[in-house]
Design a protein around this nucleic acid. Structure first.
Lengths: 237, 237
DNA sequence: AGCCGAATTTGATCTGAGTCAATCGGCTGC
DNA sequence: GCAGCCGATTGACTCAGATCAAATTCGGCT
């Protein structure tokens, strides 16, 4: 055993082989900065269903998703839920103005995040405009996605919603894991319903309908796209 | 003279007496910077219904709204429209990643904007992180509003949508023009419908219903809130 | 003032998606 | 192996909001 070995790594040295290194906020940092940066964050694990943070909680940290999927949602006082997005590896969470989170986030399946305390992270950003610019880019990208989702929620039929969701989700998985007609759906039907502004029954019926039409196959934990072109036609309609 | 025109103070050529000076991106600049900044932009006027920019247009400029109201919207190929927001004085438009606008914007009534060519503006930002930070703040604020609007579109009833809209719109007018129970509605019923994911008929019926309940009075160019508490109760439900 | 076209309101009816209510199927633990 | 559970599916029925169709009101113009 080495003289100064420790049982658990003190946060760092992980960035080098971090899977999201190129895609996440970190992509704006050079090698020297990264060395400093990695001491700020620590890896944290969340089990399936665990809540990473809740709406209205005081923001204490920023999060960089490393592995797994999270649901981001808002609740109405009577319990109705709207999922405002799913977070995947590379996504950056915790930006806000009020000092409080404006949505809740919990793990769908096992999740690893890189957690940065707000204070040190804020100080690190000072004098590193390229990191700020990167964060701004991510915010603008999310804003664009949010607007697309508003169109879906306000103006699309149930069939269009489901077809659009399948294609959009596949797109995200493709950019993470490469092209495949298998589309893993780690979230529940209820999650999909709450994302699309539908009920679980309508989502289920629409899946069944797509399967009967022969354009998808429902498999355990996801679907297979048998006829992507037909799904695109349904989404565009 | 229109009784409910949404305008800010008359605006000269110089930032010094610009009505949105304190609220807009410019609020992050000191006097010397402002002097340089004002040479970058030019005031441009748009008449009622004119399009300031269209979705998919190459971005050539950023815009700072000085006076008036704009509708920001996306169209589906078959003509369905979703209004993703209304822009008021102080709002900053034109941020994007792709080099193209991701929504269209047109004037509702007369509009004045401060237009900044993309190139010079981008160069001005370089080395002024506080301006970048200000822009980032605006983006994050919009993102938060976008998420709230997703909840409205996906999970609220028609009554709740209309009540929430009236309160939210009033809030924005209050912060521009001070408190009043008169709520100017410069946009058409169709605009409101396309913002709320409803039809014009449903919006009209809901207004009438609120009036019959005695909680609002429909007046020309807007409404009067007779019983704000009841409207809040309808919105929260 | 009087006419025209557009926006809004109102009414009648329809329908897509929600609600309510059984199953079904796959896993887990005994 | 099977009892119990939880998520998903399916079916029957309902209803909020859409659609279709007139009025009605308003603003602009001569």
């Amino acid at each position: 055993m080495k003289p100064f070995a420790v049982t658990s790594e003190p946060n760092g040295h992980f960035c080098d082989d971090c899977a999201v290194r190129g895609a996440a906020v970190c992509s704006s940092l050079d090698a020297a900065e990264l060395r400093e940066f990695e001491h700020l964050g620590r890896r944290v694990h969340f089990g399936s269903g665990e809540t990473v943070f809740s709406e209205e909680d005081i923001t204490t940290s920023f999060y960089n998703v490393l592995e797994g999927v999270m649901r981001l949602y808002k609740l109405l006082p009577d319990g109705r839920r709207q999922i405002v997005g799913f977070a995947l590896p590379g996504d950056f969470l915790g930006m806000n103005l009020s000092g409080r989170h404006n949505f809740s986030a919990d793990a769908i399946g096992a999740v690893n995040v890189c957690q940065f305390p707000k204070g040190p992270f804020g100080r690190f950003i000072e004098g590193r405009p390229q990191l700020l610019r990167r964060i701004n880019e991510l915010a603008i990208r999310e804003l664009s996605q949010a607007r697309d989702h508003m169109v879906l929620l306000g103006r699309r039929s149930a069939d269009e919603k489901v077809a659009t969701f399948l294609l959009g989700w596949r797109e995200r998985l493709v950019s993470l894991m490469g092209l495949s007609d298998m589309v893993a759906l780690p979230m529940s039907r209820q999650d999909i319903a709450d994302y699309l502004g539908l009920t679980i029954e309508t989502v289920s019926r629409t899946f069944t309908k797509l399967e009967r039409l022969g354009v998808i196959e429902i498999i355990h934990g996801g679907i297979t796209l048998l006829d992507p072109a037909r799904v695109e036609a349904m989404a565009a309609a």
